[in-house]
């Protein structure tokens, strides 16, 4: 059992977990923060996407020794009134909702470094996030609309 200290959505947290526990397991089973979803658990679907020091990564492929001392942002750390979240709701970019947290995180990372992306840049940024409901059109529209493009 190891003890890991990191910044989670701006607050310092300390958790006890086996060192090979993934960040996804710690979020969902230790901290009971279930906003981050588990899809494939092998890096294909992007559902568990979180920001590690500001960059999107798979929480399912990140073990706790890789998190120690770093900053993690999950969907719980995004303001529900954030323009991106509102745009997803308004554009109807949410259907079953399972992919939504990961897509918001990937889009959030994109807009943080590129506030006015092209449609192609949006599609590139979310290419690792699978959605089996929407066909992506409304998701892309939501991100562009949040960017004011």
């Amino acid at each position: 059992m190891g003890e890991f200290r990191f910044l989670l959505n701006g607050k310092v947290v300390t958790v006890k977990a086996p060192p090979c526990y993934t960040l996804l397991e710690v979020l969902r089973y230790v901290l009971r923060m279930t906003g981050t979803k588990e899809g494939c658990a092998r890096g294909d679907c992007g559902e568990c996407t979180v920001l590690l020091d500001g960059e999107p990564v798979h929480a399912c492929l990140t073990v706790m020794t890789q998190v120690e001392g770093r900053s993690v942002t999950t969907i719980e750390g995004i303001d529900p009134q954030h323009p991106l979240v509102r745009a997803f709701v308004e554009a109807g970019a949410v259907q079953c909702g399972h992919c939504t947290p990961g897509l918001i995180i990937s889009s959030y990372a994109l807009l943080s470094r590129n506030p006015s992306p092209t449609e192609e840049e949006v599609r590139e940024a979310i290419r690792g996030n699978l959605c089996r409901c929407t066909g992506y059109s409304k998701i892309v529209r939501a991100v562009l609309s949040a960017a004011g493009v």
Binding site: G43, T49, L52, E55, V57, H58, S106, G128
Partner: peptide
């Protein structure tokens, strides 16, 4: 090689 998430790690 893969998604943005894979490229970052």
């Amino acid at each position: 090689v893969g998604s943005v998430q894979i490229m970052n790690k």
